[in-house]
């Protein structure tokens, strides 16, 4: 496994993603969700909203990295708030 060159940061990143996925799956089995229309232009399921949230977060981080010197905790905080809003009202 040494060729994969794990670091603590990336390991915790993937653990968090895996944990989110596991929670979502568990939640989905307990309380199956139906498609609904929120503030997004298309009707979405819970999983769709999670995916949209994660993908847009990635882009926000890239924008911050590429075009400002600000600390990465700012976009991180922004994205967590955005993800929660999206899951709740999206």
């Amino acid at each position: 496994m040494s060729w994969m060159a794990w670091t603590p940061v990336t390991a915790s990143f993937f653990s968090i993603i895996a944990a989110i996925l596991a929670c979502m799956t568990f939640y989905e089995i307990k309380v199956p969700c139906t498609e609904r229309k929120g503030f997004l232009p298309i009707p979405t399921t819970r999983g769709d909203r999670l995916f949209i949230g994660l993908l847009s977060s990635a882009y926000v981080h890239l924008l911050f990295v590429g075009f400002s010197e600000a600390s990465l905790f700012i976009p991180l905080a922004l994205c967590v708030v955005w993800l929660l809003c999206l899951l709740r009202w999206g």
Binding site: T25, E28, I29, T45, G47, D48, F51
Partner: peptide, 9 residues
């Protein structure tokens, strides 16, 4: 089944 659409994508 659970996650079918996401798996497909």
């Amino acid at each position: 089944f659970v996650g079918d659409k996401h798996l497909f994508f």
